[in-house]
């Protein structure tokens, strides 16, 4: 598989995400759980960052806030200079449609749509004309190595193939960043490793920013930057040469 470059990689130093003193609590019955307790983080455009930590450390909550899926109790997430805390619902929807991509642990494909249609859906939402959609979807599925599986529905694809479709869906509209929440957790280690390798490759070739959460140390080791979380706090921010 040879990923096709779609956009020049922006300089790694340009800040894309600015997370400032972010806090989020949840009610669980009568109990209040602090999922994030003042997280501050900056991620440049074109970066590949892994959020590592055990279950309950706040990785998914942080990703949800960075993706504009949730609102913080305190602090702010600025994406490309735009405050997600202050953005309206409509603005956040528009941002998710055009500038962000999501990959989920359980693939979360629409079961009644084929691989092609699942990838096409986001482009349809963005109002892209059909011929352009076709070209983009075919290219995206080719990039993830599923050019010959376009007409298959998710239940006729393996776990790894489904996650590749999800990756294609996340990338097809050429977002500035892709947020992947435990993308390998439902896969065996070999397939999971292949998916991470694909994400890294896409990051290097296309320059798309990736923020990936995982509790798998082996995967964390593949990333040039690892932000470790524990009990809702950043406990380490490790940068290494890839």
């Amino acid at each position: 598989m040879t990923p096709t470059p779609t956009a020049p990689a922006p300089p790694a130093s340009a800040p894309l995400f600015d997370v400032v003193d972010l806090a989020r609590t949840y009610r669980r019955g009568s109990e209040t759980v602090a999922a994030l307790r003042g997280v501050t983080l900056s991620i440049g455009a074109g970066a590949f960052v892994v959020l590592a930590g055990p279950s309950g450390s706040g990785k998914s909550t942080l990703l949800n806030l960075m993706g504009g899926l949730d609102r913080p109790d305190a602090g702010d997430v600025r994406f490309g200079g735009v405050s997600l805390s202050r953005a309206s619902d409509a603005e956040r929807i528009e941002l998710r449609r055009r500038q962000l991509g999501f990959v989920f642990q359980s693939f979360n494909l629409v079961p009644v749509l084929s691989a092609y249609e699942n990838v096409e859906y986001g482009l349809w939402l963005a109002g892209m004309p059909r011929p352009e959609r076709r070209a983009r979807v075919e290219r995206a599925l080719e990039v993830v190595g599923l050019a010959d599986r376009m007409t298959h529905r998710p239940d006729h694809l393996s776990g790894g193939e489904r996650q590749r479709v999800a990756v294609a869906r996340a990338l097809v509209h050429e977002p500035r960043a892709v947020l992947a929440d435990e993308p390998t957790a439902s896969l065996d280690s070999k397939t999971g490793g292949a998916i991470i390798a694909l994400l890294v490759e896409l990051n290097q070739i296309q320059g798309t920013t990736f923020v990936v959460s995982t509790h798998d140390p082996a995967i964390a080791d593949l990333a040039p930057r690892v932000v470790r979380l524990a009990d809702g706090r950043v406990v380490a921010d490790e940068r290494r040469r890839a």
Binding site: G67, I93, E94, R96, F102, N108, Y121, L125
Partner: peptide, 16 residues
């Protein structure tokens, strides 16, 4: 519900 959550996450409006 989870599927609807996914569709909302990737930019589908509730009205859609």
């Amino acid at each position: 519900v989870r599927e609807f959550g996914t569709l909302l996450a990737i930019g589908t409006r509730r009205s859609q």
